[in-house]
Amino acid sequence: MKLPRSVAGWTIAVFGVLALVMGGLGILWPEALLRMLGLDVPATRAAGDHTGTFLLASSMASFNMGVYYLLATVTEWRAFYRFTVFFRLVTFTVFSIAVLADIAPDRFFGVAAWEGLGALATAVGLRLDARAGASTGTEVTPDDTEPADAAEGSGAAGAAPADAAR
């Protein structure tokens, strides 16, 4: 796997790896994930309790999301980076409200904080990358919406024209 080529790419890669690992943990050892989130793990579950099913689905979604984030990192898909900033802030808001409304335990605010801080880190990374690019003449513009490999097709290095100048 290629290493990220930008500050924002590193923030996306870190989130992707953690989403992948946490999703895998939830699939393989759901009790550990529940404990990490501060949720009770009863010895037995009542009939009709579908916590395990929901946890499996959420963990699989997290695992898949980790793959998507890592794919975006490898292709330096900047439009995806920008997209995640907004939606991770939405996730922060929803999860924070869940804690404040006593829908989720207080410890769940850590998940909300992770989302909010991750969004801010990516936003800062995007800004730093834009400034660095402006100073070197290789700024990635908001119109750069395709993954780098897809933009050039099967070119020699699979790099987009913007990457060729780097």
Rank of each mutant, 00 (worst) to 15 (best):
K2N: 09
P4Q: 05
V7L: 05
V7Q: 06
W10S: 05
T11E: 05
F15R: 12
G16C: 07
V17K: 08
V17Y: 13
L20A: 14
L20I: 04
L20Q: 10
V21E: 03
V21I: 15
G23C: 06
G23T: 10
G23Y: 11
G24M: 12
L25P: 02
W29T: 13
P30H: 08
E31S: 14
A32C: 02
A32T: 15
L34T: 09
L34V: 03
R35A: 13
M36G: 07
M36H: 04
L37T: 07
L39T: 02
D40R: 09
D40M: 04
D40Y: 00
D40A: 14
A43W: 00
T44E: 12
R45D: 03
A46F: 05
H50P: 01
H50V: 12
T51A: 14
F54C: 04
L55A: 13
L56H: 11
L56W: 14
A57I: 15
S58V: 13
A61F: 12
M65F: 15
V67F: 14
V67E: 00
Y68A: 13
L71D: 09
A72Y: 06
V74Y: 11
V74H: 10
E76A: 15
Y81G: 10
F83E: 01
T84F: 00
T84I: 07
T84Q: 14
F86H: 04
F86G: 08
L89Y: 11
F92S: 01
V94F: 11
S96K: 04
S96C: 04
I103V: 13
I103S: 10
I103R: 10
P105K: 13
P105I: 13
P105R: 14
R107I: 07
F108A: 14
F109A: 03
G110Q: 05
V111E: 04
A112C: 09
A113L: 15
E115S: 11
L120Y: 03
A121F: 14
T122P: 07
T122D: 09
A123H: 01
V124G: 03
V124Q: 02
G125P: 01
L126N: 04
R127W: 13
L128V: 13
L128K: 11
D129M: 05
R131M: 08
S135F: 01
S135M: 11
T136G: 02
T138M: 01
E139W: 00
V140G: 02
V140D: 09
V140Y: 02
T141I: 02
D143P: 00
D143Y: 02
D144W: 07
A148C: 15
D149H: 13
A150V: 12
A150E: 11
E152A: 15
G155F: 01
G155N: 05
A157M: 06
G158Y: 03
A159M: 06
A159D: 06
A159L: 12
P161D: 09
P161E: 06
A162K: 06
D163C: 01
A164G: 00
